[in-house]
Simulated scan of single mutants.
Amino acid sequence: MKWTHRLAVLIQAPATGDNPSSKEMQMHGEQLKTRHLTQRELADRWNKSEATIERYRSDGVGPQYLKIGGKVMYRLEDIEQFELDCLYESPNSRIAPTAANHMRGVTA
């Protein structure tokens, strides 16, 4: 049996018995669609060096990140939320509430 066929068999699960429900499978499928960026991709997005992104992470001032098997990944939704939290209307007026800063214990 080819590995692709085995993979297809593993993915196909009926929505009855002890198997996950259709709703659970749909939720799992949506989770798999979450886009992740590497440190290099985030550096390119922000026009920064990878060393700067590493420093942000080390200092705890960047977006939340995942570390799986030693590889650092950033969820696109966390990056977009961080960018919204950093959005200013004028030099003294932040547009979005600073939820990211609040989560990290940073006070204004």
Rank of each mutant, 00 (worst) to 15 (best):
S58G: 12
Q26E: 15
L37F: 05
D78P: 03
D18K: 11
I68K: 05
L37T: 01
L32I: 08
A15C: 13
E80H: 07
K67Y: 04
S22I: 12
A8D: 09
Q26G: 10
E30C: 11
K33I: 11
I11Y: 13
A43C: 01
N47K: 12
Q12S: 14
E80V: 08
N47L: 13
V9E: 14
Y56W: 04
Q31E: 15
V72M: 04
Q39T: 06
A15P: 05
G70P: 03
M25Q: 11
I11L: 14
T34S: 14
Y56S: 02
A51T: 08
L10V: 10
R55Y: 02
D59L: 11
G62N: 00
W46F: 01
A51I: 08
R75K: 10
P63V: 06
H36K: 10
G60F: 09
G29H: 07
L32A: 12
A8M: 08
L66R: 06
W46D: 00
I68Q: 07
Y74R: 00
L66H: 05
R55G: 02
I11D: 13
S49L: 01
A15I: 09
G29I: 05
I53Y: 00
H28E: 12
T38H: 04
R55K: 12
Y56Q: 04
G70V: 01
L10A: 13
E41P: 03
Q39R: 06
N19M: 15
E80M: 12
T4K: 14
L7E: 07
S22L: 15
L10F: 15
H28P: 07
K33W: 07
L76P: 01
D78L: 10
T38L: 02
I79G: 04
G60W: 11
G70F: 05
E54V: 02
Y65W: 09
I68P: 01
A15F: 13
E54T: 02
P20D: 07
Q64W: 13
N47V: 12
I79A: 06
I53G: 00
A51C: 09
V9W: 12
L76F: 03
K71G: 06
L42K: 00
N19Y: 11
G69C: 08
T34V: 15
G17T: 07
V9I: 12
S58K: 08
K67H: 06
D18T: 10
E50V: 02
E50W: 00
G29S: 10
Q39A: 03
V9G: 12
Q12K: 14
R45C: 04
S21V: 05
M73I: 03
V72P: 00
I68R: 04
L66Y: 02
E50Q: 04
A51R: 09
M25R: 06
T38P: 00
E41A: 07
Q12N: 15
E41S: 05
L32P: 01
R45M: 05
Y74F: 01
